[in-house]
Design a protein around this nucleic acid. Sequence first.
DNA 1: TTTACTTCTTAACTTAAGTCAATGAGAATG
DNA 2: CATTCTCATTGACTTAAGTTAAGAAGTAAA
Lengths: 190, 190
Amino acid sequence: MEKPDIIALLSKHIRISDEMATLITEYSQIKSLPRETTILREGQRATECFFILQGCMKKYYLQDGEDKITKFYTEGEVITPASYTNQEPSKYYISTIEETIVSFGDPNSENEIYKTHPKLESLTRKLGEIFMVKTNNEFDNWVSHNPEDRYLNLVKNRPDLIQRIPQYDIANYLGIRPESLSRIRKRLAK
Amino acid sequence: MEKPDIIALLSKHIRISDEMATLITEYSQIKSLPRETTILREGQRATECFFILQGCMKKYYLQDGEDKITKFYTEGEVITPASYTNQEPSKYYISTIEETIVSFGDPNSENEIYKTHPKLESLTRKLGEIFMVKTNNEFDNWVSHNPEDRYLNLVKNRPDLIQRIPQYDIANYLGIRPESLSRIRKRLAK
DNA sequence: TTTACTTCTTAACTTAAGTCAATGAGAATG
DNA sequence: CATTCTCATTGACTTAAGTTAAGAAGTAAA
């Protein structure tokens, strides 16, 4: 399989020097996951973290027998499961929605490469800070808007998700029932 | 002023070696901020990040003339304003609620110390990852619960906040009106 | 101590989401 | 072509939060 352009996707977030680009390209491991593949289940410990090169995934909890989606991930996004970081059993599931191509890493090779290439750890720290800002903005945006505004926001900023993902999953993610999303769409259609 | 125990607070999150402890204690700058002090305003660029040693702060947006609180910070929590990381004008305000003692850093001295002590950058990366997990958990917990559950959760996990912070600020943070919080408390009293 | 102010509570009414049930539209299957 | 299944929509009714206004309780100020 041809390697998708990991450097181009990373460069959207942070400036990558040629030296780093070579290093990353050399060390990156890539694999493809079929659609509807669950890569992490509740109770499991994650052994890998991911960077999405192509495709779409979701994170969801099983609450009272129902899925609760809290995040969609698409191209250029990093998935570092909590259980990868803290080595505790996961509280949530992660599954692909479409066929998804990812770059992945594990703790051993991560630490190994940081030891030999401290500049990469520095890059990772900075990238982590950038994603932290994004995550915080997302949180703030969420808690300060109602479902209708959140839907409008999604339509505006992530029109791809509206296309790719069935409406009942969108509603689930927005924190409402499919019936309510229907009504919101009807209200907005005017 | 006597230095509060920064090492003890950091150790709640991550193991700190004696070597790192000495380094952190030596380099940490500490100051006290009076109550109701706004340390960052919308439109400003943050020049400092903070680690709370004692006290309480809040982050809030000014939306349609009304405050919208999205986060309270207390002892042991890190405040890295988005505008500190990306050097863009801040979209939100940060203020103290009580008198607050903080350890603070600026980009120059941060980069300087990372250059001479790469182990500290490694520690910072790990700490950042730990806070990322906490932030993600908070987000998930938020979006998957209703106001009543969020209030119960706060009472259970952050009883200190219920004591320290006026009810209208708690309601604001919970995403509801003070009247609704009153009703929730009444419902629960039964 | 009287007054003003702040915070919380209560009540009546409105609005939007939840729930349950029925229907419609399209795609997949026999 | 008819049948089945999935997903989205609609309607009727319930529940909880928003809104507006009024009052209660406590604290600070005059």
